[in-house]
Amino acid sequence: MTVLTRNAIRKEMANSEDPLVITPVLDREQVGASSVDVRLGHQFIVLRRAAVTHVDPTDHEGLRSQIQRSQHQVRLSLHQGFIIHPGQLALGATLEYLSLPRRLTATVEGRSSWGRLGLVIATACNVDPGFKGCITLELVNNGEAPLVLYPGVRIAQFVFHRAEEEADYRHVDPVGPGKYDCPIGPQFSRIDRDQEIPFWGQLAMPISVRKPTPDEESHMRTWPTWELEPSEFPWHYDNRETCLLSEGEVTVEAPGQTVSLGPGDCAVFPQGLVCTWKVRTKIRKHFRFG
């Protein structure tokens, strides 16, 4: 992969067909010999210790709530300092909005001036061709003293490479734009949108079984019912299901777990679970999806 130098960068910016756009470039000296310095934006996402026991990307339902509770958005005005403490991880973003042509890729690298103070920037370094938006920067202070960062300071640099073939981040799948659609600030993780995550997280999808309280049971008995004679069948849960077994016995087998249900048992089957139902005696259940 060739690295674009100053003149090549300027030519790409002046290209009338799918130009490289970096905006705003407040000072032309940001364009160096083989990179472009970029600045820190106004917005930050601060991770905080909260009443969240874990963050599980396969927990589709709970993940949004886990992320919201463990991350907090902050927006600073110009001249206001953001203090990052030793060992702390915070998400920032570039001030500059990048529009990468389909023929170029970019890598984000920290400036050594900050690195020598212990600040590590951008653990996710690669920017795909066709990407449009401000780049989220993962900021970690590996030093021994808190650092004060100000919106607008030059924090990182883009290094551009010519791709062998054209590609487009925004059309990686038939559905539409990639996960991060023209972001203008740091973004919460969207790892749950990786389509294969539910598959890899099978073992982390526990089926919960318990006895409901009398009130809960009365309420569940108002739900729709479903019956089945003894049989065996595979099943995939597109949606979470809660059910109350009122008759019969069944064993549900999933990777890494097997549960047996009898009359009076309330079970919750998580979204994405793949399992096999083995109905031993005729069952009747009250159920609800979602």
Partner: peptide, 21 residues
């Protein structure tokens, strides 16, 4: 033109100088 590229339309660039605006 910027919007057609999904670029925020906050800057008027000089035709002769993409870094001037």
């Amino acid at each position: 033109s910027k919007l057609e590229m999904l670029v925020p339309p906050g800057e008027i660039s000089l035709e002769s100088d993409p870094l001037g605006g």
